[in-house]
């Protein structure tokens, strides 16, 4: 399976989902009613067609707005994303404050079509626009003590009503090991479907690490700190037994709630088997050579 597929972008949103669901739902009823399986045709090889723009922008896990995935797109209207600055600081030779527009002109985002696997057992295929995180790191020059990256989302309870929910420790924090961050698959995304990122997808700049569960790909980032010791993410703090630092997609490490062995691709009817490292094993497995993946979940 190719990790990065060049793609002819469909400029208009694809609204095919309902029809596909109804068709397959009908097929499901036919099976349940005992219709011969041949009527339904043999299952074809799984393909990675991009998820519709509508689903990508209306089914969002973004707790800063709402824990209801359908509600997020409605809640973002008051969120201001311009101007926006991203600070890269900590153990670096050249700390920097980038304007997002400057990031875009300087690092020239390119299209990266990635699978996104949510820890909740669903997945999408998203045509991101982004540039390798490594490019920013080259610019700021991490010092030898820098071993981890700590990412921080903006904290604006007035514009992000979910941040008033005291259950979680805001702002959202995520982390990567420096060598993970330098992997070419790790990007900072500023757009999708050839458009600027919408607020519900983490505008104006977010991380995308496609071999990890979706929650690692932190949204609306204002600060990246290069640090010496391993940062504690929001989810590690909220439920340490369920969410580890690595959170690599791994069908063999079960979660108490959702299937990690299988997933539902949004827009599809049948479950798919989840792939090791979300299908990016070739590119990233070496980062974890010799590690006990059950202990380092």
């Amino acid at each position: 399976m190719r990790a990065i597929t060049p793609l002819n972008i469909t400029p208009e949103p694809l609204y095919l989902n309902r029809r596909a669901f109804m068709r397959t739902f009908g097929a499901g009823l036919a099976v349940a009613a005992g219709a011969p399986a041949t009527l339904l045709g043999a299952p074809s090889e799984p393909t990675d067609l991009p998820t519709s723009f509508k689903d990508i922008t209306h089914y969002n896990n973004f707790y800063e707005f709402s824990s209801n995935k359908q509600a997020v797109a409605r809640m973002v209207s008051g969120f201001e994303t311009t101007p926006w600055q991203l600070e890269v600081t900590g153990r670096v030779a050249k700390p920097a404050l980038f304007d997002v527009e400057e990031l875009i002109t300087r690092f020239q985002p390119e299209e990266r079509v990635y699978r996104l696997r949510c820890v909740e057992g669903w997945s999408m295929v998203i045509p991101w626009h982004g540039f390798p995180l490594a490019r920013i790191l080259e610019a700021v020059q991490p010092t030898p003590e820098a071993r981890y990256l700590k990412f921080i989302t903006v904290h604006r309870p007035r514009q992000m009503p979910g941040q008033k929910n005291g259950w979680y420790h805001w702002p959202y924090v995520e982390g990567l090991r420096l060598d993970e961050a330098l992997n070419d698959l790790a990007i900072l995304a500023t757009g999708l479907y050839a458009k600027k990122l919408l607020a519900q997808n983490g505008a104006p700049v977010r991380l995308v690490v496609p071999w990890k569960y979706g929650f690692k790909s932190i949204k609306s980032i204002v600060r990246i700190e290069l640090v010496k010791s391993r940062p504690t993410s929001l989810w590690m703090r909220a439920a340490p037994h369920e969410y580890g630092f690595y959170a690599n997609v791994n069908p063999k490490v079960p979660h108490p709630r959702w299937s990690q062995a299988s997933e539902r691709r949004i827009g599809e009817f049948r479950r798919r088997r989840t792939l090791m490292y979300n299908g990016y094993e070739e590119q990233v497995a070496h980062l974890y050579a010799g590690m006990d993946l059950k202990a380092n979940y």
């Binding site: 989902n17 309902r18 689903d55 089914y59 669903w122 009817f269």
Partner: peptide, 10 residues
């Protein structure tokens, strides 16, 4: 009316 979210089975 197609109001069962992007993940209707769930």
């Amino acid at each position: 009316i197609d109001n069962l979210t992007a993940n209707p089975i769930q």
